[in-house]
């Protein structure tokens, strides 16, 4: 939660970088202008949140979702942002999905290892082979091979 009023400011360095990237090289931004843009950005966040919340209320939802934000940006008359926003949204969703998939895969391999460990202290050659075949990705292949080596020693 915001405890200090500074917590509602956005970091200056980041704001400066975004401004610098937007303007041609070598343009000076006065200190006053920079702090004004920073304040404006915070107010923009609040305004967008409030607009988005109205859409969520209209939809009888308790959680703000992406469509609410898109609708809010449209209502605020910043249509020129929409194309880029939607592209970024797609990329974000894909990234989240990939992360989730990766996490699930990790969980699966972990469970597989556990099952292996709980079986007899010295797994037979056959068991090791099946586990390497079951796990498709290269990571677990290597693990399987490691186990193989251990056994031979």
């Amino acid at each position: 939660m915001a405890e200090k009023i500074e917590d509602l400011n956005l970091p200056n360095a980041v704001i400066t970088r975004i401004i610098k990237d937007a303007l041609p090289e070598g343009v000076n931004v006065s200190k006053e202008a920079r702090s004004a843009i920073s304040r404006a950005a915070s107010v923009f966040v609040l305004y967008a949140t409030s607009c988005a919340n109205n859409f969520a209320l209209k939809g009888k939802r308790k959680t703000l979702n992406g469509t609410d934000v898109i609708a809010a940006v449209q209502e605020m008359e910043f249509e020129q942002f929409l194309d880029q926003l939607k592209d970024s949204w797609e990329a974000f969703k894909k990234e989240q999905k990939d992360k989730k998939d990766a996490a699930e895969k990790r969980k699966k391999t972990k469970e597989g290892e556990k099952a292996e460990g709980s079986s007899t202290g010295q797994p037979s050659q056959d068991e090791v082979n099946t586990s390497t075949e079951a796990a498709g990705n290269t990571d677990s292949m290597e693990q399987g091979e490691d186990k193989d080596d251990d056994q031979e020693m």
Binding site: I18, F44, N65, G66, V69, W89
Partner: peptide, 24 residues
């Protein structure tokens, strides 16, 4: 505001970036 979905935070952040560029 009660609940804020992760994707809405992301979109607001992105929109704010575009907004700063636009304003500048």
């Amino acid at each position: 505001i009660t609940n804020i979905g992760q994707e809405s935070v992301y979109l607001v952040a992105k929109a704010t970036e575009l907004f700063i560029q636009h304003l500048a």
